[in-house]
Amino acid sequence: MSKMKNGNLIVSSAPHVVAPVNTSKIMLDVCIALIPAMIMEVVVFGFRALALTAVCVVACVLFESVTRKLLGRPDTISDLSAVVTGILLSYNLPAGLPFWMAVVGCFVAIVIVKQVFGGLGQNFANPAIVGRIVLFISFATPMTTWVLPKSQQTVDAITGATPLGLFAKGMDVPSNMDMFLGFIGGCTGEVSAIALLIGGVYLVIKKVIEPTIPVCFIGTVFVFALAAGLDPVFHIFAGGVMLGAIFMATDYVTSPITTKGKIIFGIGCGLLTMVIRLYASYPEGVSFAILLMNILTPHIDNLTRLKLNGVPAGGDK
């Protein structure tokens, strides 16, 4: 490609592709896809959940802006990635979590995981996932105090167990339909499977994500649960499988590039999730599973990258 600049002919190498897609448009589509779950968090838990989301978004944007200035880097809040991180982090939190704790999670996600490593595209793991795990380990009691849906709250009880918590204790669990619709206890943005599914379909139609990772992730959970003699639909709708598979495991930066890599990544997430759920001390394993697979992503890419004929594996050395 050749072009004139200040009277000089500038020649650049191929390929020359001009596309209307950029980071801010992709992130805007993700925000739009997250709206159904945002509506459901208000319906199920009330405006306290929406306020928590707003606090996380504002905190993430402010942390990103201030950190970029302190590090002498260009401001990047217009790319909306900090907004997406704030929404996703809030969706992984109980509706009653104190706001200041949520802000701590935002600091970890934006400053420690994202900006310290260079900003968007340089982070080794999904920022919202790490923020959630740090909060879970640091504030175990508030992070496992689940607000009941408004329809189930009484004078004597406004908190209760999640479906996975009830399952771990061998107690009766909600119906699959209740979990599909979202009228259960849990993190604010993970309870309604149908809301998350609507968002996922939107992202696939807009070609923001490929269905490979979500299908492999959810499919592995289904097969594992079936093989273990459990209700596979329950394990798909309960906890963070739908939220994690559609919105967090598909993160461009921390998931594999190749199709084979995506398949391995999705299956790995599903396997680790079920192993943690059934055999570890935690009733939920989605966040830990995605984090572990994020760490393995560079190795998965190396193992599955396209080998060109006549080119040694180490490049042109």
Rank of each mutant, 00 (worst) to 15 (best):
M4G: 06
T212S: 15
T273H: 00
I87P: 05
T212D: 14
S255R: 02
A157K: 10
V43P: 03
A157G: 04
Q115R: 00
F265D: 09
G131M: 04
A109E: 01
T212K: 12
L292I: 08
G46Q: 04
D231W: 01
N22I: 03
E190T: 10
G182V: 09
N294Y: 02
G186I: 05
L34P: 05
G229V: 00
F99N: 10
V18Y: 11
T145D: 08
V11T: 14
T259C: 15
L97Q: 01
S65H: 12
A238K: 08
V173D: 03
L70Q: 09
I218S: 02
N92K: 03
F63Q: 03
L296C: 11
V223Q: 02
A59C: 08
G182T: 12
T85I: 13
D251I: 07
L52G: 12
I267H: 03
T297Y: 00
K260L: 14
R132D: 06
F247K: 04
M4F: 09
D316R: 13
F117T: 15
G240V: 05
V223W: 02
T297C: 04
L197Q: 01
G189M: 03
I257E: 15
A157L: 13
M38C: 15
K262A: 09
M171L: 14
L278F: 13
A14G: 15
L271C: 14
L34F: 07
T304K: 15
V42L: 08
K5S: 13
I263Y: 01
G185L: 01
A82V: 03
M1W: 15
L296W: 06
L97E: 01
V58D: 10
L296Q: 06
T258A: 12
